[in-house]
């Protein structure tokens, strides 16, 4: 049997991650449930006044999306590290850059994309103006891609550690902050009737930069974690 071509190899990896997730639907639903519950916390903490909720909605939704991405990024490589399949991936003839990209892409599809698609529902609950919804979905789609890629670096560096959970947030939250700034700015601009294009363009640029560089750092991090 000959080795599969590179695109076919990556597609197989993505499909494997998706199949693994579909067989345990809780893994997909948990981040969404987390999102819903934290959305419910804000009216309880800040008071249910629709006006004040609307003024906080853009930032609130973005922070929750960031947190649910953060909580799931710890699990990107954890299972495969524990059962040894990660070691096989490192030994495979295909370049690690592309296999890592496939893993992170699958993580993005499972958490970021699903969260972005369901976010209009929660945005309406928080009284976000309707005209901001396209900007919210677009900014979450791009921004969660960046966050999955950057989160992969943190996950790769901490996957070998027993107590990695808290540490990974300390490592990658500072790197999430620029994404949060431009993501929530895009939604705020749209909510006030301004075009969100410039902020979305910057998010897109960050996404391109992250696709180019983050898998390199993630691959280096995985090699270190496997060696250690």
């Amino acid at each position: 049997m000959s080795a599969p071509s590179l695109p076919a190899f990556c597609l197989r990896l993505v499909r494997r991650q998706l199949v693994l997730a579909v067989r345990r639907p809780v893994e997909i639903l948990n981040p969404l449930l987390f999102f819903a519950m934290v959305v419910a916390l804000f009216p309880l903490g800040l008071g249910p006044d629709p006006k004040s909720l609307a003024s906080f909605a853009a930032g609130t939704l973005w922070i929750i999306a960031l947190l649910s991405n953060l909580l799931t990024s710890d699990t990107i490589f954890r299972g495969d590290y524990d059962d040894g399949s990660l070691e096989q991936l490192l030994l495979a003839p295909q370049p690690l850059y592309f296999s890592v990209l496939a893993y992170l892409g699958a993580h993005w599809l499972l958490t970021g994309v699903s969260l972005a698609l369901i976010s209009p529902l929660f945005a309406l609950m928080l009284n976000l103006p309707l005209e901001a919804l396209p900007a919210l979905v677009a900014s979450l789609l791009l921004g969660s891609g960046v966050m999955s890629l950057v989160g992969g670096v943190g996950a790769a560096l901490t996957v070998g550690l027993k107590r990695g959970g808290m540490l990974i947030s300390l490592l990658i939250l500072p790197l999430y902050m620029p994404v949060l700034i431009f993501g929530s700015a895009a939604v705020r601009a749209a909510a006030q009737g301004f075009p969100a294009g410039p902020q979305l363009a910057i998010l897109g640029a960050m996404f391109c930069l992250a696709i180019a560089l983050a898998p390199l750092a993630t691959a280096a991090g995985l090699r270190i974690s496997i060696d250690a």
């Binding site: 950057v150 670096v153 560096l157 901490t158 070998g160 550690l161 107590r163 990695g164 540490l167 300390l170 490592l171 790197l175 560089l213 983050a214 750092a217 280096a220 991090g221 270190i224 974690s225 060696d227 250690a228």
Partner: peptide, 21 residues
Amino acid sequence: LYEAYDNKAAAARACAVLSLV
């Protein structure tokens, strides 16, 4: 991150990657 690793050689490499990122 440096303090979290027991193996100091691996810790240094991990920190190097993080600081470059």
